[in-house]
């Protein structure tokens, strides 16, 4: 008798994923129905989905998304540009690397949210301070990634730049930056993620607009379902951006 053929692997993987989501959802619903937490602390999945739907059709969400997007965008643009310039400048010179590399690593180590009081004092409690935080958050991963890539760049590129008598600007823009493009993308991926986190946390702490502010408003009104819906939406956006950047990174690595 012929043995029945096993299901393809991808089917089993998909089934396992669906099963896991069902178990997690069922567990969540069990907690929502139980008396383990006070009423409203664990909203039903249907309530979360309803809040998500309402939020997606509300102008409030989009105006807050615009504010957060503006803060993150400014931070990434400024932080990314400064990070690339720093990384190439310090990485290309062994002296500068040994002088400033340790300082860069030291300042990169701390969570950027702790700089929020400084940002507020310098830039106020509005959009600018969160953009400043986003700038710092994006700057360090980009600078360190580009620094490392420039340092370990194939020596032949340096020789080529020297032999062609390129000016520092020409060498940086035509050789070093293109050569370190995968590292720039890797640094930006990390930097954008950290920028989003820092901006959101800054908004939760002190803000009048933005997704983080909207989140804290939900928390303040004890509308936990709305709060979770906003958190899920933020996760989805962050993961989507990361996935897009990973694709670009793969293409750059494959050249």
């Amino acid at each position: 008798m012929k043995k029945p053929s096993a299901a393809p692997v991808w089917v089993n993987v998909a089934l396992l994923r669906v099963l896991s989501l069902c178990v997690i959802t069922a567990f969540w619903e069990f907690l929502a129905f139980s008396d383990l937490y006070f009423a409203g602390a664990i909203p039903h999945v249907s309530a979360i989905l309803w809040e998500l739907l309402q939020a997606l059709f509300s102008a409030n969400l989009y105006s807050n998304l615009m504010v957060t997007g503006q803060e993150v965008g400014t931070g990434v643009l400024l932080g990314g540009t400064l990070g690339i310039v720093t990384g190439v400048t310090v990485g290309v010179s062994p002296f500068l690397y040994r002088a400033y590399g340790p300082l860069l690593y030291m300042f990169a180590a701390a969570p950027k949210i702790v700089y929020l009081p400084i940002m507020i004092m310098l830039l106020g409690s509005g959009v600018a301070s969160k953009s400043g935080l986003g700038t710092l958050a994006c700057y360090f991963p980009v600078a360190l990634s580009v620094l490392s890539a420039t340092l370990h760049m194939k020596p032949i590129y340096r020789h080529l730049a020297l032999s062609m008598r390129l000016s520092a600007y020409q060498a940086a823009t035509k050789v070093y930056i293109p050569a370190t493009a995968p590292a720039i993308m890797n640094g930006l991926k990390l930097g954008i993620g950290l920028s989003i986190v820092s901006v959101l946390l800054g908004e939760t702490k002190l803000s009048r607009a933005g997704i983080g502010f909207q989140l804290m408003q939900s928390y303040g009104r004890f509308n936990i379902a709305e709060m979770i819906a906003l958190i899920l939406l933020t996760f989805f956006i962050a993961i989507a951006i990361n996935a897009l950047l990973s694709r670009i990174e793969l293409r750059l690595n494959g050249r």
Binding site: I156, L160, S163, M164, V175, P178, A179
Partner: peptide, 18 residues
């Protein structure tokens, strides 16, 4: 320093991959 009238070909692959 490197002379403007000298062209160089290196042992390693020096083509710019991008």
């Amino acid at each position: 320093g490197p002379h403007p009238d000298v062209g160089m070909v290196f042992q390693e692959d020096s083509t710019l991959p991008w």
